[in-house]
Amino acid sequence: MEFIEFKNLSKNFGPKEALKNINLTIEKGKIYGLLGPNGSGKTTMIKIINDLLQPTSGEILINGREPGIESKKIISFLPERTYLNMNMKVSELIQFFKDFYDDFDEKKAIQLLHKLKIKETDQLKNMSKGTKEKVQLVMVMSRKADLYILDEPIGGVDPASRDYILETILTNFNEGSSILISTHLISDIEKILDQVIFINQGKVVLNEDADTIRKKKKTTIDKLFREEFKC
């Protein structure tokens, strides 16, 4: 079932073309890897899905409609930066998510935070960058969303925590939901991907089933990426 559709979508920043005529479909129930080098347009695509940027031409449809209040109810988004109000305590942040998202599971969030040794009374401003990232990820994954969009979810996290976080992502998303992960740390996540999208210079250069890549091309996604984007 078509969930998200990019139709001839382009995005310019002044004279620079960030996305060029993208046609892409995201279906329900799959884990997508959005992979590409720095500046390839990954984050721009993600921001357009989340209504933070508007396309210059073409359109994007989520369940047949433009991004808006309805799409925000069903998409759980983790940006590549810290978006938290630093004057909050963890407990206040939990309350905030509970207030605005009907699908937020407070118990699950607290349980995940405790496993990461983060207390409700902790102040966000006193946390390290990596810990803030973990808190954000827990908030995002504690929603029962139809689509989780994770932009560089493990970028600032130490390798030891990465496995736990990937496990958190995998065990906490709904059956029938989709995940779109953008990253260049491919080897860490490639085992969980169902579908791989390579993007370069604003264009989709590959959109293929992960197993097909592994079986037919007899290579790992990481190796394929290194070949495709060799400097």
């Binding site: 933070l52 925000k72 998409i75």
Partner: peptide, 17 residues
């Protein structure tokens, strides 16, 4: 700070008008 800087990523993805 809340609507244009980093916090805007949260505020503008809340399901509110």
């Amino acid at each position: 700070q809340n609507l244009i800087k980093d916090e805007g990523y949260l505020m503008h993805t809340l399901p509110v008008s």
